[in-house]
Design a protein around this nucleic acid. Structure first.
Length: 124
RNA sequence: GGAGGACGCCGGGCGGCCGCUGCCUAAAGGCAGAGGAAAGUCCGGACACCAAAGGGCAGGGAGGUCGCUAACGGCGACCGGGGGCGACCCCAGGGAAAGGGCCACAGAAAAGAUACCGCCCUGAAGUAAAAUUCAGGGUAAGGGUGAAAAGGCGGGGUAAUAGCCCACCAGCCUGCCGGGCGACCGGCAGGGCUUGGUAACCCCCUCCCGGUGCAAGGCCGAAUAGGUUCCGCUUGAAGGACUGCCCGUCCUUUUUCCUUACGGAAAGGCGGAACGGGUUGGCUGCUCGAGCGCGCCGGCAACGGCGCGCCAAGACGAAUGGCCGCCAUCCCUUUUAAAAGGGAGACAGGAUCCGGCUUACGGCGCCCUCCGGCA
RNA sequence: UGGGGCGUCGCCAAGCGGUAAGGCACGGGGUUUUGAUCCCCGCACCCGGAGGUUCGAAUCCUCCCGCCCCAG
């Protein structure tokens, strides 16, 4: 955790205000959001007027049993919590599972999503 | 040592930092936070609403006996049948002389034996006599088919046969005796001689079952169009003032038709039902319960009773995760050893709650059986 | 949470107690100068899996596995 000490005031929390909570919000993000493609996930980004980023996860039963799906969601949440500054501000983010077989630990998630985000930033 | 069969237990432990959900608190902070299967959703309940309130039909389910249980298709003990050398295991295990259906192929015939090849008798033709052929009759011993062929074997008997008769055996039925709550078991006597299989085909018998499911249901908010129809009440109705409320009084606003009047009808008002339309937001249900642990008692057991102690997730786009240290288990390498280094750890996660069943899976313990070796 | 359906050759499928049709594809042969068309032959022994009932099971029953769909 040594690298976190460089940002002593960094916000590591993850409360309900930072999540998508209603079906309508999910549907909107999926329909109107800009889609990024990572190797294992699809990421939808949609600007909101709240002044904060919000995360929604949709892992379908195709990804596996309950244990496997929970594991993927927990890893994604953990990555989001530790790397909020990588995402554009005031945006709804929806992450969907594509093919999740290769995800074993937090490092796999980190590499995959970081690559997708930096690629998108270059294109802008 | 190998192969196998029962039964039971465990499902890593301690700690730090950063997070998540709930509860407590003024706050700081503290406490709690997935399983033996939480799973599959195969049964049974609790609970809630709707319908009915009696009886029957249809439909579905259960099926040895006795118990346990809130209930069960579950569990326990026992009985019967089957499998295994054995420890042990398996069984939808009522009825086939209530009825219907089916039993391919083969075979004469697959169930009221209309008997194919045969066997036997009689008559006719034929012949020296036979053989042989035809017609009528009596038979079911022998043959082959099949999963299955109308009790088995021996003797008597007959023209040839046949439970036609007899002995023994097997099976069935009836009666009696003994044991058991019972399923059933054991024994004796008699009878008729014999009755195929299939009910996880229809069916019959006995017993059980109303439907829908916590997205049930309740409250609030928002929104749409206080829309349409029907029923009941009301001739006056609505609003305001006095008042805590009712009655009562006063004031204001607002109708039409028929009838002398009582009254009736319509509009209006109030209440209810149905249809139609809108909303998918919050709270509740929501976790203390056929509850868990320990001890004693009753019972072969399933289980029950009593006493003491305990409170152990309650989320709702849905929480139990990430990183790290130490210990324990197992594996590999180095090493005489101690020890060091590296690695591994299954099946799988609540969604109203319980009781089972089934399936998935990593280990451990104890007992038993068979086989082999050594002493 | 509850309900329904499907699984048969590489693909599409019929059969629903008596030993598995058909089409496409594939392989071989024939016809043709060659190719296409056409004709003939071949191609399922584990009917998703495991038990059970039956003389006999793709078919009936039970339990699993996989896939698809529906309701609020």
């Amino acid at each position: 955790m040594g690298k976190d000490e460089a940002f002593p005031e960094k916000d590591l929390s993850f409360t309900k205000a930072e999540r998508l909570l209603r079906p309508a919000e999910f549907a909107e993000a999926r329909k109107l959001g800009k889609r990024l493609s990572a190797r294992s996930f699809n990421i939808y980004l949609l600007e909101n007027k709240l002044g904060r980023i919000r995360l929604g996860l949709a892992i379908s039963s195709r990804a596996g049993g309950a244990v496997k799906r929970n594991r993927i969601k927990r890893l994604l949440r953990e990555f989001f919590r530790l790397n909020k500054e990588l995402f554009p501000a005031s945006t709804d983010i929806l992450i969907t599972a594509k093919s999740v077989e290769s995800i074993k630990g937090l490092k796999d998630v980190e590499e995959d999503i970081k690559a997708a985000l930096s690629k998108a930033r270059k294109n802008l």
